[in-house]
Design a binder for these strands. Structure first.
Lengths: 239, 239
DNA sequence: CCAATAGTGTCTTTGAGACACTATACG
DNA sequence: CGTATAGTGTCTCAAAGACACTATTGG
């Protein structure tokens, strides 16, 4: 939570905060964790990204860890710096520069641990709009969520980053449990890219990159032929 | 310039600064603008990136504009946000979080306008080393420049970003004057990527992307067949 | 044996490197 | 008319999409 207005105004420097775009995938939709706001001085809607003021004795990464723990109940998760936002009017309570991060977690990690004032909302990629009063983001179902402050733009930047990094990094794996099928991974890619991918090409690409290795185990409980389970291949392992 | 230590210590929040990696290409080498430091409390070497404390009433971009103008004598230049650095011990004078930017300018824009306490130093890409006490960067000629603070790591991040964006954006054009030959552009790419490229493939790629268009003008004063001059093709133009 | 999905073999298409060729300006 | 560089045509190769085929499980 940002400091009170009085705290900010006496400073000669902008206050420094961090905001987190925590994403997961559920039912083939990208879901973002948002927190209900009750402050009357807000801009835009009632829903804000979880965030905090950065303390004097902590790094940005430590501040993000705090947010992950306190606002999402997570002890650890993949996260990465996104971008720093510094528009003069982005927060009406005072001058706050925020360093945005995004985090990725498997859906199962998240459910049951979320505080009661947070929700997961689906988002759809609408392209990056660097300017403009962008506070609303639509879901696939046509519903609209109105974000507080410039948080809709931050979410847009996070989704753009995720799309861009998907096929030359291993970020896709962060959205899956330890063991997963290649069909699951393809579903992750299809959801994020909003495309349909062809199975043989996708398998070749993934297997060629060696970021993933077969476990010899197979799914169970399915009505038909079970798929093999794969797991992350940490660099240094053979094959 | 960061504030004095007294200013910083009374705060309950980190101070916010920006540092700029201003790059150009000269004689097939990436050159970075650095500024001579005289402060005895420095960490590492005598050479620092130009930067400033961010004022209460300006955005990060406005602060970068000030640095470009005051430290490099430039009225305008291409620049883009790089990354925010927040290690607790990165500045021994106090707790300073810095938002790093990189800027690209054609060599001709820069020479003759640089303040007397600044220099252009060549850098060589050595891979990104996220951690480690990285203060020295080598030049191709084998010389070493010792940077102040964590500025060597910031320079490393800037070069990594430039390399990564080179072939799917138009950043290469920012390093050339308004009119240029395709050979010039190929030289820019070869310098940044530290590779040799084949002419036909390079031309096809560049021309297919339509970021550049022929002007019908040709270079003059060369002993042999003059090359056609190209210029940037702003989106919206036909062909 | 049937349904339905896992997994593969191969053809085609596309984009980049290799290489040799033609084109053109100056002296 | 020779020299040196500009610019192009074409072959090869590698990676990805298309599509059809085989493999395997529960019922």
């Amino acid at each position: 939570m940002p400091a009170t207005p009085r705290d900010i105004r006496v400073k000669t420097q902008p206050a420094l905060a961090t905001d987190l775009v925590l994403m997961t995938i559920r039912d083939r939709q990208i879901m973002v964790l948002v927190q209900k706001r009750h402050d009357a001085r807000q801009v835009g809607g009632d829903w804000a990204l979880p965030g905090t003021i950065v303390r004097l004795n902590e790094t940005l990464e430590q501040a993000v860890q705090r947010v992950l723990h306190e606002k999402a109940g997570l002890r650890e998760a993949f996260f990465e710096q996104l971008q720093t936002f510094s528009a003069l009017d982005r927060d009406p309570r005072g001058r706050v520069v925020t360093v945005a991060y995004y985090a990725l977690v498997p859906e199962a990690e998240l459910t049951n641990r979320m505080p009661s004032d947070t929700r997961l909302f689906p988002v759809q990629y609408l392209g990056i709009d660097e300017n403009g009063p962008l506070t609303k983001l639509q879901t696939k179902a046509g519903k609209t969520l109105t974000y507080a402050f410039d948080h809709a733009r931050i979410v847009g930047a996070a989704i753009a980053r995720l799309r861009a990094k998907l096929d030359y990094t291993t970020v896709g794996l962060e959205l899956l449990p330890r063991r997963f099928t290649l069909r699951d991974l393809q579903g992750i890619h299809e959801t994020i890219l909003e495309t349909k991918l062809t199975k043989p090409a996708f398998r070749r690409k993934i297997l060629d990159r060696k970021h993933v290795k077969p476990t010899g185990r197979y799914e169970t409980g399915r009505a038909f032929r079970p798929a093999e389970l794969y797991e992350r291949n940490y660099p240094g392992d053979i094959k």
